[in-house]
Simulated scan of single mutants.
Amino acid sequence: MSQPTDVTHRSVSSPAGRIHLVEQGAGPLVLLVHGFPESWYSWRHQLPVLAAAGYRAVAMDVRGYGRSSKPANVAAYRMLDLVEDNVAVVRALGEETAVIVGHDWGATIAASSALVRPEVFRAVGLLSVPYAPPGGPRPSEVFAHMGGDEEFYVSYFQEPERAEAEIEPDVRGWLAGFYAAFSADTMPAAPDPHFVSRGGKLRDRFPAGRLPAWLSADDLDVYAGEFERTGMTGALNRYRNMDRDWADLAAFHGAPITQPSLFVGGALDASTTWLSDAIRAYPTTLPGLVSSHLLDGCGHWIQQERRAEVNEILTGWLASLPA
């Protein structure tokens, strides 16, 4: 398996209980936060490169994933609790501040961390999901009106045990299809895999029989092995807190992130095309933006699909930051 060979695995205390970390290198701390449905392993190509560039690179299993704690209460996965997990990680590592970089849900967690705890997170890098300030209509109301006769995947994930019943009988096959559905070289032209036909399942629209180029069978085994061991509920509970987050972050509605920032998205990723207005608003919402990149021909799993390009962008941006 293509895991870095000289990383250190450890766990630290957080409000959730324990957070599992993978660490490589020494120097200024860079905290890497994964998205759904992944783990620290999503950063396997970045850890050695950041370490070689002189950084203390730390990839975490987010609360509910991998070898981190998995509280039973759905509300324990609200954004403010995940922010405090990140602060606890920084403190447990003996640091006062860190650069935080996130992908997918991890990008939103990273952005929220920078927004809520700017004294801890001195810079923020966002991969795939642009920053949009908290606020606007209640999320559940927005998602309920998307897709017409079809159901948006975020709405599909809301009901406890519903998505679990689809995924858990065949975790490996479901993950393979989900990763392929949003990868540049395997994504279907139609129908849109972000939506579910009434009475259907999300996997009905996944491509079958082919892994994307970035994902080896061994890589898939790593991801599948973690979710086969833990189940999917901890990961899915993040989606089940979006209305709570909307209320919890009311004091930050419309607020910009002023720290130095970075955005990297895939030109073929719906996260960047649907949220193109958010990217255009960066002069207002990310006034500290150092650089913004849209990678042609790239899908959603950006740091794995385009590892060399993303590594070059990340290390260049990190080198530009004040000490």
Results as ranks from 00 to 15, higher is better:
E228L: 01
A224R: 01
M146G: 02
T108M: 14
E309D: 15
D204Y: 00
A180C: 11
G254K: 07
G288K: 05
D185Y: 08
T258V: 12
S113R: 06
P4F: 07
A319E: 11
P169S: 02
V7C: 12
L321C: 06
R306F: 07
S2E: 15
W105Q: 05
A255R: 13
L289R: 01
I167D: 02
W105Y: 07
S140Y: 00
G231H: 07
G265R: 03
Q304P: 00
V142F: 12
S292E: 12
A180N: 02
S291Y: 00
A190D: 14
A76N: 13
N311E: 00
W214Y: 11
T258Q: 08
A75Y: 00
Q24Y: 01
S320Y: 02
L262E: 00
E309I: 03
L80A: 02
G64W: 05
M79V: 13
L29N: 11
D149E: 15
D218H: 12
R10I: 12
G147N: 03
E96R: 15
G234D: 09
A278D: 14
N311V: 09
D61I: 06
T97R: 15
R203M: 07
Y131P: 09
L289P: 08
G54L: 06
A132W: 03
V30A: 03
V290C: 08
A270I: 13
L295A: 05
H9C: 08
M79D: 03
R229F: 00
A323T: 14
W317H: 03
P260A: 07
G27R: 10
A92Y: 00
L50E: 08
W246T: 09
G288R: 04
E312M: 04
A278Y: 01
Y223N: 13
A26D: 12
P260E: 08
D149T: 14
T258K: 13
R244Y: 10
R63T: 14
P212A: 04
A270N: 11
A107Y: 01
H103A: 14
A88S: 12
A213K: 13
V7D: 02
A51S: 10
R307D: 11
H34K: 02
L286H: 01
V62T: 12
F36N: 13
L249K: 06
A189Y: 00
R162D: 05
A111K: 06
F182D: 07
S261H: 10
S292W: 03
Q303K: 06
E226R: 10
G35H: 01
H145I: 04
Y239P: 14
Y156G: 10
L175E: 04
A111I: 05
S197T: 13
V87P: 05
G173T: 09
R229S: 12
R91P: 09
L21S: 04
E141T: 14
T97V: 14
M79I: 10
L295V: 15
D6Q: 14
N237V: 05
L286V: 06
H253L: 06
E23L: 08
H34P: 11
G94S: 11
N311Y: 02
A176Q: 02
G231K: 07
L321G: 03
W317C: 04
Y239E: 13
S68F: 10
F195D: 01
V33C: 10
P28S: 10
L220C: 13
L275D: 15
T8Q: 13
E168S: 10
R44F: 09
S216P: 09
A247K: 09
M1F: 11
R210Y: 00
A132C: 08
E159C: 05
V171S: 03
L275M: 15
A208Q: 14
H145A: 15
